[in-house]
Simulated assay, not measured.
Amino acid sequence: MSLQWSSDLEIGIPVIDSQHQRIVEYINGVELAHQHHSQKELLVVLDELVDYTLSHFEFEESLIEEAGYPFTKAHKKVHALFTRRVQGYQQRAKAGEDVTEELTHTLKTWLVNHIKHDDRDYTGVVKDNMNEATKRVKAKSGSWMSRLFG
């Protein structure tokens, strides 16, 4: 059964929500490869999932670090542990082992729990930081640029 994106998985930061949605699509791709009985398809989707998730983690970590989130170090550690776990599945799959059911269950459970708990914890701090940054940009652009073109 595929994982369905729903509003209860949104954290209210559109760029992060869209990245999470993309990860859900990759997880569903893993399940689809299993339905097709295609190890080759699984390996391709798994490589894409790992690459995309790593870039998402880096982006998310830069946001929370910049925002001064007090649990940034712990959040990064959770990401690193999960990455190692998925890379273990990836190696097992490359060795020919059928890991799709176990992997799909792990991915779905981890992602939903991570979004609903770990990611929701940093949402307020990141939103506040983004709002402050937007105000600073508007204030700067409102100064010399508005005078120049006003």
Rank of each mutant, 00 (worst) to 15 (best):
S2G: 07
Q4G: 03
Q4C: 03
W5P: 06
W5L: 13
S6E: 02
S6M: 04
S7T: 10
D8F: 09
D8E: 13
G12A: 09
P14R: 14
P14D: 15
D17C: 03
D17L: 03
S18W: 07
H20A: 00
R22F: 11
R22D: 08
I23E: 01
I23M: 01
V24S: 02
N28H: 04
N28M: 05
G29L: 01
G29A: 02
V30G: 01
H34S: 07
Q35R: 09
H36R: 05
H37N: 10
Q39I: 10
K40A: 15
K40M: 09
E41S: 04
L43A: 08
V44G: 02
V45T: 03
L46Y: 09
D47K: 13
D47V: 07
E48P: 05
L49F: 12
L49C: 04
V50F: 00
V50H: 01
Y52G: 00
L54D: 11
E58Y: 01
F59Q: 12
E61T: 10
S62F: 07
L63N: 10
I64T: 12
E66L: 06
E66M: 07
E66F: 07
A67S: 05
G68T: 09
Y69M: 07
Y69Q: 07
F71T: 10
F71V: 08
K73N: 10
K73P: 03
K73H: 12
A74F: 07
A74W: 06
H75Q: 07
K77A: 08
V78C: 08
H79K: 10
A80E: 15
A80H: 15
L81K: 15
L81N: 15
F82D: 00
F82V: 01
F82M: 03
T83I: 04
T83G: 08
T83P: 06
T83S: 11
R85I: 04
R85Y: 13
R85L: 11
V86H: 03
G88A: 00
K94A: 00
K94D: 00
G96C: 02
E97W: 08
E97I: 06
E97V: 06
D98H: 14
T100C: 03
T100G: 00
E101L: 04
E101P: 01
E101Q: 05
E102T: 03
E102C: 00
H105T: 13
T106Y: 15
T106S: 08
L111H: 11
L111D: 06
V112I: 15
V112A: 04
V112W: 09
V112D: 01
N113F: 03
H114N: 04
H114D: 04
I115F: 12
I115S: 06
D119V: 02
D121V: 13
D121K: 15
D121H: 11
T123D: 11
T123C: 12
T123I: 13
T123G: 08
G124R: 14
G124E: 14
V125L: 08
V126N: 11
V126I: 10
V126H: 06
K127G: 05
K127Y: 13
D128V: 14
N129G: 09
N129Q: 14
R136P: 02
R136M: 01
V137K: 14
K138S: 11
A139R: 15
A139N: 12
S141V: 10
S143A: 10
M145I: 13
R147Y: 11
F149I: 11
